[in-house]
Design a protein around this nucleic acid. Structure first.
Lengths: 127, 127
DNA sequence: CAACGTAGTTTCTCGAAGGAAACTACTTTC
DNA sequence: GAAAGTAGTTTCCTTCGAGAAACTACGTTG
């Protein structure tokens, strides 16, 4: 569309890129999504497993977050015809495609911790 | 520090990594932060420039978001001794270090758009 | 039949996030 | 002296995200 596109490595963020970033943020925001994805990255889990492993989450939130993740194709939900029906949640291949983002964020976050510690030299350890 | 580090490429997310990701998310969340960072990635701007360019933001939100970004070291705030004082906001080198994350998210978000379009074949274009 | 385990849903509530509009404070221009 | 431009702050209000607790529904076990 535009004659000149100016993606000279530096400026970043034409509006469509900003929109794409916001889409990604929307999908990953919510207090528990990343923790759930992290849990499922170890292997498939059932509802009650997640309740136990995602510390502090309630059934309502877990249910809601799982639904949203499923709608976005990041996880799969499979009902197993066991005695009391059990439901297996697993990361899809698409969900796994988030890895580069998660690694980039983990990496930056870890450097940030170090930087913050350096700045406040020993103060602030609310963790 | 740790004797074993277990970054075997696959499982991802020992608790410290999850925490780091959450730290990063906290810093980037908020309705306007990414847009502001995007704006400033083109060059330094003043308060009123940002008010005009970040469409829809109010002065309170802009002020708050800028403060938070400054506290986290992502942007710098410089008061220029001009006739009416002007204030220059700019991305710091540290702020620029977010690029890999932003690119990863832009990339994923763009693929996601394509996938969503493919799924709903022409429906849903609320944009 | 009562208790327990599965997988949720529903209701009620509170606090934080965010927005609109008015206001501060200082300076230059008309 | 009034208006306009700089950079915000303050107040008030609404909406949304999230949590606690209770409830549904189904099947198994004792």
């Amino acid at each position: 569309m535009n004659k000149k596109v100016f993606i000279d490595q530096k400026p970043l963020q034409c509006p469509s890129q900003l929109k794409a970033i916001h889409d990604t943020m929307d999908i990953l925001s919510g207090k528990w999504k990343i923790t759930i994805i992290g849990c499922l990255s170890f292997g498939e889990k059932r509802f009650m497993d997640l309740m136990r492993e995602v510390n502090g989450i309630g059934s309502k939130m877990l249910s809601k977050e799982l639904q949203e993740l499923e709608i976005n194709g990041l996880i799969s939900r499979t009902v197993q015809p066991t005695k009391p029906v059990t439901v297996e949640y697993a990361l899809t291949a698409y969900g796994q495609s988030l890895r580069p983002i998660l690694w980039a964020m983990a990496d930056w976050g870890q450097h940030h911790r170090i930087k913050v510690k350096a700045t406040f030299k020993g103060e602030v350890c609310h963790d």
